[in-house]
Amino acid sequence: MAEIRLAKLAHSYGNGTNALKPLDMTWRDGGTYALLGPSGCGKSTMLNIISGLLKPSEGRVLFDGQDVTDKDTGARNIAQVFQVPVIYRSMTVGENLAFPLVCRRVPTPRIKARVEAIAERLGLSRHLNSRAVALTADQKQLISLGRGLVREDVSAVLLDEPLTVIDPQMKFELRKILKDINREFRLTMVLVTHDQNEALTFADTVVVMNHGEVIQAGTPQELFERPATTHVGTFIGSPAMNFLPAVREGDRVLVPGAGLSRTAPADLPTTDLTLAFRPEHAVAGGPLAGTVTRIWFEGADQVLALSVGDASLRIRAVAGAETVGAIVRFDVPQDCLRLYHQGRLVA
């Protein structure tokens, strides 16, 4: 268990690919983090640098204030779970789980107790003596995880898209196990994922990356309510945030023809402005009106696509009797309207 700090960290691969741009970041001890971002944005690169599989081309990695940049993977005491389960084929499940302790010369009785406890926790007790190859993909992934957990003093558990090859049904189970384990063992956990649901439900801090940069790090709530860029707003939340081109008129910013407006901060430029709000933040009834162009049924809710003036946007509403072509009245509270200039949050 450790606090992990990345200081002025940057990495480019030998072939010139600039995978990580210089960044500073701290992973709190015992925190759960989700790394979210499109393919190729440098998520795996960051994890591999933390675990020591990759040496950063610039900057330092610190565990609890101690510089570990030049230390080997083994000395850092990190557990990493990859997309494809990695298991030792020639060993049984029990031997797989015991291996990290065997390598670290832990006394045998201690190993036995530890392996049994972890197997119990992960629901692998029945399989301890089976050959690891014979298990299903999700059980193999649990073995990978278990090999990290048997070490009581593991600095952090890094999970690089561990649920991609798992059945959707098992995914839910595994996610729950991960969450429970984090609570029980107070481990620092970093989960890389493409799935925003996974990120938002698992982590207390979500880190959104793009093109080798950290764009925003915050609680799921913050990410949802105040996306730092239009990219984050589009990436997180379903349906995506509404982004409407806006203009400045005096001390107000408004969407022409739609009736949406808010006060403008003093030094706001006049071009390249966007007003945005979450479909979830629209409330029924009010001064705004739009024609329903499409309806998505979502159980108790429905998502309505509206055309308001020249703009089209989506709102989430209680399931009701609206039909395509009907006029719907709604409002967006002032404190839920976000203002972006050149794609970056202004207010």
């Binding site: 599989l53 080997d72 993977t73 083994g74 990190i78 990695v86 030792y88 291996f99 990978s144």
Partner: peptide, 13 residues
């Protein structure tokens, strides 16, 4: 796969 070596290093071998 190289991943096997990496996993083993991580496990402290």
């Amino acid at each position: 796969p190289r991943g096997l070596d990496e996993m083993a290093w991580m496990d402290g071998c």
